[in-house]
């Protein structure tokens, strides 16, 4: 924004500035409504990651990495995974692993229902969004002689 040489042309930058927030919001909408309409943690997470990737494509990598650096992305990814696992572990309160332990009966078309499923969706979206963004930045920022191990395994035994 301050550095006009970086990134694409003015038209692209202006449009991006207008749309990127909407894309992010749409992603969050998809995540939160995952249990009552098509979509869910994975699709919403991908859209959230795409909003950051969009920013990176339009303004260059520095601007996007200032918003969400690689280290932060990797922390968020691990947090998402641990959150998902702890939700699953909390199911032991009801006697079973992955047990839907509160608000047991979901009611159709109600946003606050379906127990742990929205929480699982949020955890998955964190994991997928941060993971996808991390993969993209690792491939973009790739410089020779950089000791940088890739952890690409998205641990996706979960988003069924």
């Amino acid at each position: 924004m301050k550095n006009p040489e970086k990134g694409m042309t003015l038209i692209v930058k202006t449009i991006t500035r207008l749309t990127v927030g909407l894309i992010l919001l749409y992603g969050i909408y998809i995540v939160l409504h995952g249990h009552i309409s098509p979509g869910g943690g994975f699709a919403g997470g991908v859209i959230i990651a795409l909003s950051f990737i969009h920013l990176m494509l339009a303004f260059g990598k520095e601007v996007a990495l200032k918003k969400l650096s690689q280290a932060q992305a990797s922390i968020l990814e691990s947090l998402g995974a641990i959150m998902f696992l702890s939700i699953a572990l909390l199911g032991f309160l009801g006697g079973y692993f992955f047990f839907n332990f509160f608000l047991h009966k979901g009611s159709p078309f109600a946003l606050f229902s379906a127990g742990i499923i929205p929480l699982c969706n949020i955890a998955i979206s964190l994991k997928v969004g941060a993971g996808l963004f991390a993969i993209f930045t690792v491939l973009v920022l790739f410089t020779p002689l950089e000791i940088n191990r890739f952890n690409k395994d998205n641990g996706n035994n979960s988003n069924k």
Binding site: I75, S78, L79, A81, I82
Partner: peptide, 18 residues
């Protein structure tokens, strides 16, 4: 039974976090 999967997964992500 579930602990055979929970323990390594949890350890993996705790290690990657801290």
């Amino acid at each position: 039974l579930p602990f055979f999967v929970i323990i390594p997964l949890g350890t993996a992500f705790l290690i990657s976090l801290f």
